[in-house]
Amino acid sequence: MQEMLNVEDLWVSVGDRQVLKGVHFSMNYGEINMLFGPNGAGKTSFIMTLMGFPRYRVEQGKIYFKGEDVTDKDLYERAHLGLGVSFQRPPTVKGVTLRKMIEIMSNDGAEKGKLISHIEKLHLSGHLDRGLNEGFSGGEMKRSELLQLMVQRPELVLIDEPESGVDIENIALVGEAINSLLGKDKVKDPKRSAIIITHTGYILDFVNADEGYIVVDGNLVCRGNPRDILSEIKKHGYRRCAECR
């Protein structure tokens, strides 16, 4: 079977800073991959480049999604091909409510019942008429991001630090939402996949990840079992990973 995502020798810069330095990466349909790494290592740059944000300038290399070269496609085209992202810190969009956003993204009313249930489960009923992310707490932002992705239904979800700014109680809620988004709470949907960035690894208690990677200095190193990697990081930090490149 063809790989869902294939990244070849990817070099990316932001302004005059090199953020990715020759990344090779691939994953299959249905996989959940975790990215670990110190601050500034290039984790967010990697998923933002995959999504196609223009400030992440691809200098060299290729990105293939579902067999198609998407390196030169814009955000909108990539979203329509099946890529979606949950931001760590999404921008505030005053005047555009969460309700409006969901209305625009929903193509038909067929899923309305399901949508209401998602809104209730994510405790967002009271946030629908507020500007997107306007005055949202960390946890509310994460839940709002996941709700939007539930409407968008991307095949490959890129999630940037789902635990950051979320209290312990709400991490379970976020974890459940991710599982629901990926169809993991039901019969496994072989097509929905994810790349999740985590600092703390808390999310591993809720999400059954297949592979883990450590990102160091603009590259992906140390592929392995995500729990083993987390335990290694907890013991020795990221230093050993940098050394074993």
């Binding site: 944000f53 909108y76 979606g84 931001f87 999404p90 921008p91 969009v93």
Partner: peptide
């Protein structure tokens, strides 16, 4: 860009 990443045209 945020809205575009949700599949909304520019």
């Amino acid at each position: 860009e945020y809205l575009m990443s949700r599949g909304i045209s520019k």
